[in-house]
Simulated assay, not measured.
Amino acid sequence: MRNEVIITCAVTGDDSKVTKSPYCAVTPTEIAQSAIEAAKAGAAIVHIHVRDPETRAYSMETKYYRETVKTIRESGVDVIVNLTAGVGGYVYVSNDGELLGPEHGTDFVSQETRMRHVIELVNEGRYAPEICTVDCGPYNVGDGNRTYLSTPDYVRQGTRLCRELGVKPEFEVFDTGHLWLCQKMIAEGLVDDPMMVQLCASIPYAMPANVGLLASLVSTLPASAQFASFGIGRLQMPMVAQSVMLGGHVRVGLEDNLYLSKGVYGSNAQLVSKARTIIEAMGAKIASPERARDLLKIKRR
């Protein structure tokens, strides 16, 4: 069991379903404020997606990330900023084998384009993230003909870019083979110690939220790795307990779950507070942002 736990709050995500929550943050100011409230509740890391303020749909525009990070940093609240770099991998196909275009939802782009906002913020020298995500492989996304693509060479390129930019990669593992690739990259010398892994469970039809499977994956991680795991919907809080029991950190937030209890919408701060209650009831304590930086070996921006 882990005695010191980092809480990550995934503030909004890229799915349209989150917009039905009255707590869904849309504008950069709203997203930043929700992240700040989550940090005050105990989150050491905030995982950020941004949205177009007019359409409410997900966006990868650097200007929205810049404004969001600027507001967080200038608030005086200490929290580690983790920006998504996973948007740009969705592919839709027809039952006839036709690759459907952007008008149908396909947004597939290069790995460098997926990380454009991170690259630009680092090059500007202000409001750069401390962490960004690298999605480690393909998986089907629910029923129908939607899939997510991230090839081994895309993952390697993302890892190299993170090293060049001085940003910690958080490897998003959605299935067992993705962790195999992470281990291969360690052997290739691409990953700096400690490797940071997010085990993403219960997304149909990727990796199920099965405690036996989770334990099996954890047993294959390098001893120095820092890992977290999460479940979606009603599995969010049970996965908090499971992750801590297996020696990991946790992730909660509206990206993965809208409800504090059955039928009751919750804010990001409320979800963090509930996770904190579980963690502390188990006899562990939450890690401060400064302690999280020490565990992950990252520097304050």
Rank of each mutant, 00 (worst) to 15 (best):
R2I: 06
N3M: 15
I7Y: 01
G13F: 11
S16E: 15
S21D: 05
Y23R: 02
A25V: 05
V26I: 15
T29R: 13
T29H: 14
E30P: 00
I36W: 11
I36A: 02
A38L: 07
A41L: 08
A43V: 13
A43H: 13
I45A: 05
V46C: 01
H47V: 10
I48E: 03
R51H: 03
D52I: 10
P53I: 10
Y58K: 03
S59Y: 09
E61N: 09
Y65F: 15
E67A: 11
V69M: 08
R73N: 01
V77D: 06
V77K: 09
V79L: 10
T84V: 04
G89P: 00
V91S: 06
V91L: 15
G97Q: 12
P102A: 10
H104V: 06
G105D: 08
F108S: 02
V109W: 02
S110F: 14
E112G: 00
V118G: 03
E120D: 10
P129I: 15
C136N: 01
N140L: 15
D143Q: 09
R146Q: 08
T147L: 14
L149V: 07
T151G: 03
G158C: 12
T159L: 08
T159C: 12
C162Y: 13
E164D: 14
L165Y: 11
G166F: 11
K168P: 02
V173D: 04
F174V: 02
M185I: 09
I186F: 14
E188R: 08
L190N: 02
V191N: 07
P194A: 07
P194S: 10
M195F: 06
M196V: 11
M196C: 04
V211N: 04
S219I: 12
T220E: 06
L221N: 00
F227K: 00
M237K: 03
Q242A: 05
S243F: 15
V244A: 08
L246R: 05
L246H: 09
V252K: 04
K262I: 02
G263K: 09
G263P: 00
V264C: 04
V264E: 14
V264L: 10
S267T: 11
N268K: 08
K274E: 01
K274P: 01
R276S: 04
R276Y: 10
G283V: 07
G283N: 10
K285P: 00
L295P: 01
L296R: 00
L296H: 05
K299V: 05
